[in-house]
Amino acid sequence: MKNHLLTYGSFSEYEIDKIVNEYSEELTFKKRDYIVTAGEVSHYQYFILEGCMRGFIIDYQGKEHNIIFGFEDFWFGDMESFDSGKAAIYNFQALEPLKLLAISKENWDKISTEIPSFIAYKCKLFQNAMMFQQMRIAEHLTQSAEQRYYNLLQKYPDVIFRISLKNIASYLGISPEFVSILRKRAVQK
C-alpha cells in the first residue's frame, strides 16, 4: 500500500505508517468468500494486497452482472453504503485467496481529519474511478464484444489466467462460448 500512497499522494513515512498500521486492519478471505454482500451495510473500504476479486450486481431476474475486477493495489467497496450507512447494492467476492487492508468508516474519517494529504489522495482515487467507469460505459456502448475483449486483455494481460470464462463473459456482456472463441482467435494471432 505504501507504493500506492506515494504514487497517488504525498505522504511522510509517519503518515504512511499511521494509515497502514494504526488505521487499517489486515483481513484474509478464501476463494469464493463474500467480502461485501448486497443488502448489508458496507463498513469498510478495502485495498487488495494479494489476490483478485469481482464486484457484481444481481438484476431483477436474478442474473449476475460483473461490473469490476480488482487485482493487487486496487481499492474497492460499495462507496454509497460505506458513506451513507444504507444497504449495499454491490456484492464483492474473492476469485482467489485475498489478503486485504480494510479501513473502517470511523478510521477513514479520522485519517481525513488527521492527515490532510489523504483528502487529495481520495480525490485522485475518486477521479480515477469516475474516469474508469465512464470509459467502461463508453466501451460497452460503442465497441464490439471483440474490441472489448482485446481492451480487457490489454489492460489486464493475466486476466485470462486468473478469471473464469464465465466471469469474463459476464463482465463483457457476452456468452462464455463467445469468450472461448475470442480466446482461440487471440492465441492464433
Score class of each variant (00 low, 15 high):
residue 121 Y to C: 03
residue 65 H to F: 11
residue 47 F to G: 02
residue 151 N to C: 07
residue 103 I to Q: 01
residue 122 K to F: 11
residue 132 F to H: 05
residue 115 I to R: 12
residue 110 K to F: 08
residue 147 Q to G: 10
residue 96 E to G: 01
residue 151 N to D: 09
residue 113 T to F: 13
residue 140 H to Y: 15
residue 188 Q to S: 13
residue 126 F to Q: 07
residue 73 D to Q: 10
residue 111 I to T: 03
residue 6 L to I: 11
residue 180 S to Q: 05
residue 5 L to H: 02
residue 70 G to N: 03
residue 88 A to S: 09
residue 117 S to C: 14
residue 69 F to V: 01
residue 25 E to V: 12
residue 137 I to D: 13
residue 179 V to T: 00
residue 52 C to A: 12
residue 148 R to C: 04
residue 67 I to T: 15
residue 137 I to P: 10
residue 47 F to C: 05
residue 24 S to T: 09
residue 35 I to W: 02
residue 38 A to T: 03
residue 149 Y to R: 00
residue 63 K to S: 14
residue 141 L to N: 15
residue 57 I to S: 12
residue 138 A to P: 08
residue 187 V to K: 15
residue 41 V to R: 09
residue 154 Q to Y: 10
residue 15 E to G: 08
residue 141 L to T: 14
residue 177 E to I: 13
residue 173 G to H: 06
residue 127 Q to G: 06
residue 11 F to A: 03
residue 168 I to L: 06
residue 176 P to C: 07
residue 65 H to G: 08
residue 110 K to R: 09
residue 104 S to M: 07
residue 178 F to K: 01
residue 62 G to H: 14
residue 35 I to C: 03
residue 12 S to K: 13
residue 150 Y to D: 04
residue 74 F to P: 02
residue 186 A to Q: 15
residue 132 F to M: 04
residue 174 I to L: 02
residue 183 R to T: 06
residue 160 I to Q: 01
residue 25 E to W: 12
residue 145 A to I: 01
residue 128 N to Y: 02
residue 153 L to D: 00
residue 99 K to R: 11
residue 79 M to D: 07
residue 154 Q to K: 15
residue 114 E to Y: 13
residue 90 Y to T: 06
residue 134 Q to D: 06
residue 162 R to C: 05
residue 73 D to T: 09
residue 89 I to P: 02
residue 162 R to M: 09
residue 126 F to S: 09
residue 59 D to I: 08
residue 138 A to H: 15
residue 66 N to K: 05
residue 154 Q to T: 14
residue 38 A to M: 04
residue 116 P to C: 11
residue 91 N to S: 05
residue 93 Q to G: 04
